[in-house]
Design a protein around this nucleic acid. Structure first.
Lengths: 359, 359
DNA sequence: GTCAAAATTTGAACCGATCCAACGAAAGTG
DNA sequence: CACTTTCGTTGGATCGGTTCAAATTTTGAC
């Protein structure tokens, strides 16, 4: 009886109901887009026809073409999609981006992909008005792709020495890293270890300063420069500071600490390039009965909320994530072509994971 | 010199470069869509023209209309957008949804809005192939809206006694809640308090069984039924069990506990309808020096990862969130019209927040 | 050198709407 | 009653591509 099996076929267009209602498609369109300008009787007739034929309202696909604007911004990363919900930094950033979008009524499309080919396609075919690009790992490729699309886009946290023509919002990684290192040197630490974000395309393991200098992702580079600038300043021989490259997950961080603490001269302070790494490090240290900050101090980078409630709470460099998100959205939506790069200040927040060097 | 100020105007279409390259638009289209079938010389010529004119590749807006498929699924909720990144349950669910999407190459569009009018518009104009609807709070309206769009959609965690014609994936809330309550009764508890999810449209405060029976969101209803079924079974007078309605945030949960523990007969066990509430409750109890589980036991609902690392770790009813996400995506993408409602089993996971009743 | 088969290219139709100039009818004016 | 407004409606143009049958060119065989 009821038209319930109409799930398969749905070729019911605006034109169909216009015909059914005996009006032109122009009028039918107006019924939905500007109901006030069509006579009530006609309006009701068209609506009735729509109802009867199971019309779900004007298809946005059609409208889109004419309107030009999608009213959604794409957020892209080279990580799998679940990165947006798994990674603490991404989550906070996304929360602030989404708040900014909410305020302006824009939607959010998550753009990403496991493999590179898929990623290119996804970016090329994303229905968005612009992109916000998360530049962790594989950032330059992503930026390249986004730029090819010829849409407004902002890179989050991009390369200090990369192409100046791309809009970017980031923090001063060098200054932040220096701040972190100085905090530790002032506490008397002289034996350090560094946990870095991914530099090469994949994998983790011990690495060198030279390797990091070639990192794909400049934040990694800059943070190391910042660390080492400060360490050198107080006379630490940076060539002997172990650097371990991780992929920002528990496994690689733990492997890193296994490696670092297997050495003859164990560090009293660990500089981690992300809070996520630092938090995993805290776990590892606890499990190995190494007191924090008694035996070893840990300083992170990012300022994610988890750091405030970890055991112990994490000393870290906090980025103005909310501000970055807001600015990024603004840059896309109000894109006047003029926007360029913007560097925001970071802040050292001292909590309980750092203390005076032992002995 | 370089064409860098072309940011403002971009009226360069496929037809333009076709003309420039001296080929038909059909051929120009092929150059991008099926490069293999066009002669190399022509292909290069067209590509060169595209490059020269700053063409960013075929605009998906145009392709979309013909293709019909957007290749993205919309995830909708009546909460603000940031809900997806703030709420623990939503996050886990989204992570599993995004994994499923990644596997199939589909994108994700976040659909939401602060106010109701905006929400309706957003749903009507979302460029997606289907919706996954988060039914917390305001679920029925959302379902209504989604259904009007005449696209495949699945409700997550919908009403047991709601319209049978809407596809839904959920858990057996009654059974789960019973399980939680039975765990506590078996530990000897007889004095309970219940923290509920939002029932009425807004606000929080003490409520009654009758109120909850009228809850907009059926999970709330069912969970209470499950709790009370078990409590009644062992002879607890459920009419005297305090029920406090929260809005699932810290403030309202704390207010709830203030209220509950201000009463003459304080509970030895708290049944919380979400882990989020349970975790906030744990915080409140710790701050009030009430031992968990020594003085008071707490049992949550959902099974979010935070529960495993809380202080103490949370006893809870875990939902098969990953499975639900996978099924939901599958239901949308492989929509054959046949899909209907599916109820998944839950599981009691006993951790350290529950113990024998004191005395 | 001729002719059929294979490889390319063309141009029109179409996807589903919105927009707008022009038009007809009803209402208002002198 | 002729004439200007106002209101509502119409139908064609347009958004930016893809697709496909038909036309054209190239290639291969004899």
């Amino acid at each position: 009886m009821a038209p319930l099996s109409s799930a398969k076929t749905r070729p019911v267009r605006l034109a169909d109901i216009a015909k059914a209602a005996g009006v032109s498609h122009g009028t039918a369109s107006n019924v939905f887009a500007r109901p006030d300008i069509v006579r009530e009787e006609v309006r009701e007739r068209v609506k009735a026809a729509a109802e009867a034929m199971g019309y779900g309202g004007p298809d946005p696909k059609g409208r889109l073409l004419r309107a030009g604007k999608v009213n959604a911004i794409g957020v892209a990363t080279a990580e799998p999609l679940s990165y947006f919900f798994d990674d603490p930094f991404a989550r906070v950033m996304m929360a602030s981006i989404s708040q900014a979008c909410d305020a302006t009524g824009a939607g959010i499309s998550l753009v990403s992909a496991a493999n590179n080919e898929q990623l290119a396609w996804n970016i090329q075919s994303a229905l968005v008005d612009g992109f916000i690009v998360f530049c962790v790992d594989g950032g330059s490729r992503l930026v390249e792709l986004a730029r090819e699309r010829k849409l407004p886009f902002v890179a989050l946290d991009l390369d200090s020495d990369d192409d100046d023509a791309v809009a970017a919002i980031g923090v001063d990684n060098i200054a932040g890293a220096s701040l972190a290192a100085r905090h530790l040197t002032e506490l008397g630490h002289r034996r350090f270890a560094v946990l870095t974000l991914p530099c090469a395309d994949a994998g983790f393991g011990p690495t060198t300063r030279e390797q990091v200098e070639m990192a794909l992702y400049s934040a990694t580079r800059d943070r190391l420069r910042g660390y080492f600038a400060e360490l050198s300043r107080v006379g630490v021989d940076v060539s002997r500071v172990p650097i371990y490259e991780t992929v920002n997950d528990e496994k690689s961080v733990w492997a890193g600490l296994d490696h670092i603490f297997a050495g003859a001269e164990t560090p009293t302070a660990i500089l981690a390039m992300s809070d996520r790494m630092a938090l995993h490090a805290l776990d590892w240290l606890r499990q190995h009965d190494i007191a924090v900050p008694g035996d070893v101090s840990v300083v992170g980078f990012d300022g994610v909320p988890e750091g405030a409630i970890s055991k112990p709470p994490l000393t870290t460099i906090v980025q103005p994530i909310a501000e970055m998100g807001r600015l990024a959205v603004k840059a896309i939506l109000e894109n006047d072509g003029s926007f360029s790069r913007q560097s925001l200040p970071v802040q050292l927040v001292v909590r309980a994971s750092s203390g005076p060097s032992p002995a």
